[in-house]
């Protein structure tokens, strides 16, 4: 299954940095998100789109994770990329496969 079946996302930008908020539809799925969608896995998923590190913030009360990273193409005001803000990136993250064994492991 894909991440988009259990979570929704919104992408924002500030300067050269982009943030993707990943929010569980069902707060009970937050623990699963927390375990499965690590900063490292997000970094691997986006590959060369990312410059530097991916930082992850946890918001258990909201059932959300917030990923922050710099884009390899630079920010909105100095990039030739069509989507200079990177606002489309959240939906690439939602395509990430979520493994069924990890789902069972989470007791869901």
């Amino acid at each position: 299954m894909q991440l988009r079946e259990i979570a929704h996302a919104r992408t924002g930008d500030k300067g050269n940095l982009v943030n993707i908020a990943l929010i569980a539809y069902d707060p009970a799925k937050f623990e699963l998100l927390r375990r499965v969608v690590s900063a490292r896995r997000v970094h691997e998923w986006f590959g060369s789109l990312v410059a530097g590190e991916v930082v992850r913030y946890e918001l258990p009360r909201l059932g959300a994770l917030n990923f922050v990273f710099a884009r390899a193409t630079g920010g909105v005001t100095n990039s030739l990329v069509l989507d200079g803000h990177g606002k489309s990136l959240g939906f690439l993250l939602l395509d990430m496969p979520v493994d069924d064994t990890s789902m069972r492991h989470a007791g869901t």
Binding site: H8, R10, G12, N19, A21, I23, Y57, L62, G63, A64
Partner: peptide, 16 residues
């Protein structure tokens, strides 16, 4: 709640 959560974290880095 879903629309509010998306906007609360929009353009946010460290939420704290």
């Amino acid at each position: 709640a879903a629309t509010v959560k998306e906007q609360l974290l929009y353009e946010i880095h460290d939420p704290s």
